[in-house]
Simulated assay, not measured.
Amino acid sequence: MNFTETEILEKLDLAFQGIPSDDFPDGNEEDIKYNFFIDLEHGYFETAGNKIHLYGDKNRWAIVFEKCGYLNRGGAGVIELDYIGNCIDYPISKYPERSYITNCETIELVSSEEYERIRNKKGSEMEQFELISPEALTINIHERNVPIDQDINKYIKLGIQPREFDNPEKLIGYGDIIRFYNETYPELVSATEIEIMTHLPTDIPKIMTISEFHYISSHDAIFPSNQETFLMIAKILSTGDTSFWKPTLKSNNHWSNWESGHL
């Protein structure tokens, strides 16, 4: 390989700190750069599903963090893809005053307009906030119209508890429904291969997808280069050998293990 495990881990450590790597586009002095790392505890993002995709060959490598959920400040359901590697076509949003250069791509699952269409419109103001009408029959999610299961007991059995405050009717929340589909129809709320490949070379081979892994809170300030999960990932990318995925730590990346979307 024309890259090393050390190089991979160094780039992961930079993203963990939010520091752009040296292959980010130079841009102009007033431009703003963001380098994101997977975060299962984000206060503005109510996490549902998440996974890690690995791509690579002898010269190129890429890690794509995928996370779906509800943006409680943006009022939309989304998939977030964070790209780290040596062959990333970094997204650039251009505006008259500056450009924003990032390693993140957002895919809409449920628009704010769709949430408004199915919003509960009865009761107090807070009973209408981010709760779905019991009369709503369908939802447009990831460009598909699918039925809404209104049986709250099915949600509870999956560990999805209805909001306690200002929710006397135990209505389904905006984030609840994405978590429900993540448990019952995960393909619906997952990125397609075409969507994932948007900022990767079209001919880069896929090595594997990791759906279960050991996650360490960013609050613990342990760099990826010192975490078992990413040491194994660096070994796999630098060799192309998936047999190096032999975790000894229990997987804990399921949304139920982390508090998110709480701000």
Results as ranks from 00 to 15, higher is better:
residue 177 I to C: 02
residue 234 A to C: 07
residue 111 S to L: 04
residue 234 A to Y: 03
residue 100 Y to G: 00
residue 168 P to V: 11
residue 127 E to K: 08
residue 180 F to G: 00
residue 8 I to L: 06
residue 62 A to W: 03
residue 94 K to E: 15
residue 215 Y to L: 10
residue 92 I to H: 05
residue 177 I to K: 01
residue 53 H to W: 13
residue 246 K to D: 12
residue 219 H to W: 09
residue 21 S to M: 05
residue 141 I to G: 01
residue 109 L to R: 02
residue 160 I to L: 07
residue 168 P to D: 13
residue 229 T to C: 09
residue 250 K to R: 13
residue 141 I to R: 02
residue 21 S to K: 03
residue 6 T to C: 03
residue 59 N to T: 11
residue 230 F to N: 03
residue 27 G to K: 09
residue 85 G to S: 09
residue 71 L to S: 15
residue 10 E to G: 00
residue 14 L to I: 03
residue 103 N to C: 10
residue 231 L to C: 09
residue 131 L to S: 02
residue 261 G to M: 08
residue 15 A to G: 12
residue 260 S to N: 06
residue 84 I to Y: 01
residue 244 F to L: 04
residue 248 T to V: 11
residue 200 L to F: 07
residue 41 E to T: 14
residue 191 A to W: 01
residue 136 A to T: 10
residue 236 I to M: 06
residue 158 L to E: 05
residue 116 E to D: 12
residue 142 H to I: 07
residue 239 T to A: 12
residue 55 Y to K: 04
residue 98 R to P: 00
residue 15 A to D: 10
residue 127 E to N: 10
residue 121 K to V: 08
residue 231 L to D: 00
residue 55 Y to C: 06
residue 243 S to R: 12
residue 31 D to G: 06
residue 80 E to N: 11
residue 259 E to T: 14
residue 158 L to K: 07
